[in-house]
């Protein structure tokens, strides 16, 4: 509505009319509303057109939900994220020495690469902290991307440490174990930071009566159990998968010890291609199990066993 203009008074148009019981406000408004013929801004409906990225992803990458102040269980999750974030930052620094980083490739200077790599890790940690504290998905996503960028290596290398406080460089098994732990921490960070948002959303929905949760403690308890059990399982299974090139000679050894010995000493098998080959072999087996519909059979088995 625009401002009043006495010259555009139209109240007289209504004076002679038989207009019964109409709202006095309308008659008054008809006389007082300005003569501007522009469409009021609030008359245009807001149409949310998804961006190209949103169309590809089927929705916004980062939900723009507003949350109520965090409940205790969300605060606990936030605290866990802070802990994981600190551990992840330290491990990222340890296992990503400046050599081989994108910065070293671009600048060729170890000093600059060190500074940039450190800055990246600090920034990733900082945005992670802020995103988790504010429960803002944009910062969390940025932090995730920065951690991924920090760990990317653009050089042929075995695992090297920038800070080897425990002398792990000479113990290949512990060294690869450290990388596995790092990878699990990275995934757990992704999961937990996402979990903070998911559970904030759930908490807000519960408190605004959008959703009713029966026995929320039990549901949250299951999530907490998974947060402990799944990383342990992931560490064990990943170690087994990554050791496929060592396990393979063991099985071959049952039939031919000479061949097994040659395999153990083979440079190809202990190289990255050997690891990849072993992994590929394991995942082919897993893929085969899926092709045989193992999950359904497993579910059937569980259902029947429970009966």
């Amino acid at each position: 509505m625009t401002v009043s203009k006495p010259s555009s008074d139209t109240a007289h148009l209504y004076d002679g009319k038989t207009v019964r019981s109409s709202a006095p406000s309308r008659k008054k408004a008809a006389g007082q509303i300005g003569a501007g013929s522009d469409i009021p801004k609030d008359a245009i409906p807001t149409v949310e057109i998804p961006t190209f990225i949103e169309s590809l992803l089927g929705g916004p990458l980062v939900p723009k939900a507003k949350f109520l102040p965090p409940a205790k269980w969300v605060q606990t999750l936030q605290l866990v994220v802070y802990g994981v974030l600190v551990a992840l930052a330290m491990l990222t620094y340890m296992i990503s020495p400046p050599e081989g980083t994108i910065w070293y490739m671009i600048t060729g200077s170890l000093g600059i690469a060190t500074v940039l790599q450190l800055t990246l890790i600090v920034a990733a940690t900082g945005t992670g902290f802020w995103g988790t504290f504010q429960r803002d998905g944009r910062f969390t996503l940025l932090s995730n991307l920065m951690f991924i960028l920090a760990i990317l290596r653009f050089a042929s290398s075995k695992v090297t440490l920038s800070s080897d406080m425990f002398g792990l460089q000479d113990k290949p098994f512990l060294l690869s174990g450290l990388v596995v732990v790092y990878a699990v921490l990275l995934i757990m960070y992704f999961e937990l930071s996402n979990g903070v948002l998911r559970y904030s959303m759930l908490d807000t929905s519960i408190r605004t009566n959008e959703v009713y949760v029966m026995n929320p403690q039990k549901i949250v308890g299951k999530y907490h159990r998974s947060l402990i059990i799944n990383p342990i399982i992931a560490v064990v299974l990943a170690t087994v998968v990554l050791s496929a090139n060592s396990i393979l000679p063991f099985f071959v050894g049952i039939f031919s010890k000479d061949t097994a010995l040659r395999m153990e000493e083979s440079v190809e098998l202990i190289s990255v291609y050997g690891v990849a080959l072993g992994t590929f072999f394991v995942f082919c087996v897993v893929g085969g199990l899926f092709a045989l519909n193992l999950p359904t059979h497993l579910q059937n088995f569980r259902e029947k066993r429970a009966e």
Binding site: F154, S156, A234, A238, Y273, A276, F283
Partner: peptide, 25 residues
């Protein structure tokens, strides 16, 4: 990791695969 012959990247990828497979199974 395979292209650059970097075992660290392969290791991280394998851990993510394992995590997903476990959740799926």
């Amino acid at each position: 990791g395979l292209t650059l012959r970097n075992s660290q990247l392969v290791t991280i990828a394998v851990v993510i695969f394992v995590f997903l497979t476990w959740a799926a199974l």
